[in-house]
């Protein structure tokens, strides 16, 4: 399990990285951020990029910035290289505490210390916590390409299994959360701690939205969602080895209810606290 050979490039800036991606477009370049999924896949030789463009040394890509919008609402900007652990430990205020709390579902400590928010979103696993959170909270993904920066709504970002709206020469710079979600939660089920979820569910009581992972090839957002039964019954599921459709549907029903209950309980804690 040793990776195939590649040429290594250390980008000094986002612009440098974008330039390398454009220049090497024909030779399967790949961005290296935390590498917690990519390097594992390279060791299995399931991913074999010809070039690795390492952005981990690019200054300014890690960090969380809080600001206030024109309407007085809190805005959170999470740099692409911010680690899961940094988010877990950060005080994001009641508006975005859901993000910190959700980090307990991301792998284990040594994965959280290296894995990054941007890398997770770019990898686009349909059960990954960041993909679900971004969709649930209508986050915007800021990407820089040869033509400059653009913002992509999370709802339009995830196109299919491990497939996103990013152009091959675009680099995620940051994720913007500009809609506070003080009454939101994410919960999951897996047989074993730290695994990718069989089903994950997030709920935002303020918008009434629910997001589900593990039920389709991309995170499934249900706006103005009904009861857990209604949501679960509407899913298009097939039997898979070890996971019959009825079981997955049942998990969805349970987890939606639990995400909502956790979101409600969080609010009570805050108001009691």
């Amino acid at each position: 399990m040793k990776p195939a050979t590649f040429t290594y490039h250390r980008a000094s800036s986002v612009r440098d990285a974008v330039g390398l991606l454009s220049e090497l477009a024909e030779e399967e370049p790949k961005l290296l951020a935390g590498g917690q999924s990519l390097v594992a896949m390279m060791n299995y030789r399931m991913a074999r990029p010809g070039h690795l463009v390492d952005i981990t040394h690019v200054p300014g890509l890690a960090g969380i910035r809080r600001s206030t919008g024109d309407d007085g609402r809190a805005i959170l900007r999470i740099g692409a290289l911010t680690t899961h652990r940094a988010v877990e430990k950060a005080d994001l205020g009641p508006e975005f505490a859901v993000l910190s709390r959700a980090m307990r579902w991301v792998g284990h400590l040594p994965i959280r210390t290296r894995g990054t928010v941007g890398g997770s979103i770019a990898h686009a696993d349909a059960t990954a916590e960041w993909c679900l959170l971004a969709v649930l909270l209508d986050a915007r993904i800021v990407a820089e390409g040869p033509a400059g920066r653009r913002e992509i709504g999370a709802g339009e970002f995830f196109l299919g299994p491990f497939t996103t709206a990013l152009e091959p020469d675009e680099v995620i710079v940051e994720i913007v959360f500009d809609r506070p979600a003080p009454r939101a939660a994410l919960t999951e089920y897996a047989d074993r701690r730290g695994d990718f979820a069989v089903v994950a569910a997030g709920a935002d009581l303020d918008t009434g939205s629910v997001v589900l992972g593990g039920v389709a090839t991309v995170p499934q957002l249900v706006r103005a969602a009904g009861t857990p039964d209604e949501i679960a019954d509407a899913l298009d599921l097939r039997d898979e080895p070890g996971v019959p459709a009825a079981y997955r549907r049942g998990l969805a029903r349970t987890l939606v209810a639990r995400a909502r209950a956790e979101a409600a309980a969080t609010t009570e804690e805050d108001s009691n606290g």
């Binding site: 299995y44 047989d191 074993r192 701690r193 730290g194 695994d195 990718f196 080895p241």
Partner: peptide, 29 residues
Amino acid sequence: ALFEQVTYDELGQPLAPSFMEYKVPTAAE
């Protein structure tokens, strides 16, 4: 009893080539 199984598809291809599928329990279990 609860976690580990080596599985194959109908062609005899192994379905648990990594610890993602072969679920060795941790201290949490």
